[in-house]
């Protein structure tokens, strides 16, 4: 559906996107993961035809963005990082305007607008000026704008930024639903978001794609179940000694006492070994009850560190 071939964007000396190639199949939900300034937005801006690439080409449904921009733009709904809203319009006027510039015919316009407003839950603010809406609502109006005209491809740049946790979950579920009918490319700098929604993840760093895999494989590869934070009711030295004696343990360290009579420890397992059960039985047998145990998610920085160093080892 979307093919990106050897895409490069230079701003003077600075290379924002460096020879990026990937393709997205019909119906896929692909996540773009990367820190700020990695080139996510630039890539999306090029795919949607907002800016032009220095080199390389983008094809959507077989149409080249340079040769047939209108055909490409018809097939893409784009929600930029800052939703392009006219603050002096009401929600309904705005969506009406978007329908007009997307050349939706009058007969279906009204019905599809209702459906979209229902879907993103902005029906109750339809008569309000966009300038008086909260960030969460503006974000949804931005999403509604992208959905107008039922484009087969949706490109969403950080769709959940600035939303409260409940809204984030709603939007994620909405995106998952949309994924049944649309091809979706979304960007994020939050790992759990991408793994919750996407079928495939592209990690981009400094303008280059450093990894491309399913979230599960990526997690496995990065071993994010390998570290446990455990709070044990027991004396620090004995607990540490006990855990160190188990098989498959890479390191154990104490992170201090946060509750009287207990100790917090950080256990790191060797690769591909699940140590949760052995840790439980060992401490239980010694009658040091576990009060808390949770696997530690790797932060994005750590994943980047891992991915980038792994890439270096390969090359």
């Amino acid at each position: 559906m979307v093919q990106v071939i050897n895409l490069t964007k230079r701003y003077g000396q600075h290379v924002a996107v460096d020879n990026v190639s990937f393709s997205v199949e019909k119906g896929e939900i692909v996540g773009f993961l990367g820190p700020n300034g990695a080139g996510k937005t630039t890539t999306m801006n090029i795919i949607t035809g907002y800016i032009s690439a220095t080199e390389g080409s983008v094809k959507v449904d077989g149409f080249d963005i340079l040769e047939e921009p209108e055909e490409v733009k018809k097939r893409i709904g784009y929600m930029p990082e800052f939703p392009p809203l006219y603050l002096d319009m009401t929600v309904q006027e705005y969506l009406n305007f978007v329908s007009d510039i997307k050349k939706i015919d009058r007969v279906t316009k009204k019905r599809s607008m209702e459906k979209i407003m229902d879907m993103v839950k902005i029906g109750d603010v339809r008569k309000r000026l966009i300038k008086n809406l909260s960030k969460g609502y503006r974000q949804r109006v931005g999403l509604a704008q992208a959905l107008i005209g039922a484009p087969p491809v949706l490109i969403l740049d950080e769709p959940t930024v600035g939303l409260d946790p409940k809204q984030i979950i709603e939007i994620r579920n909405l995106i998952k639903d949309l994924g049944k009918e649309h091809t979706i490319i979304l960007s994020s700098h939050i790992l759990p978001e991408v793994s919750a929604v996407c079928e495939r993840v592209l990690i981009i760093n400094k303008g280059k794609i450093v990894a491309s895999d399913t979230p599960e494989n990526l997690s496995k590869r990065l071993g994010d179940t390998g570290r446990l934070a455990v709070r044990v009711a027991g004396p620090e030295r004995q607990v540490l000694k006990l855990i160190r004696g188990l098989a498959g343990i890479k390191s154990v360290e104490s992170t201090g006492v946060k509750e009287p009579g207990t100790v917090d420890i950080l256990v790191e397992a060797e690769k591909d070994i699940d140590i949760r059960r052995p840790v439980f039985y060992a401490l239980s047998r010694a009658e040091y009850p576990i009060l808390q145990m949770k696997p530690l998610d790797l932060t994005l920085e750590e994943i980047f560190l891992q991915v980038t160093t792994q890439e270096k080892e390969v090359s």
Binding site: G49, K74, L85, K102
Partner: peptide
């Protein structure tokens, strides 16, 4: 908002 106009048909 030019992003909306320039990425529309």
């Amino acid at each position: 908002t030019d992003q909306l106009l320039l990425t529309s048909p």
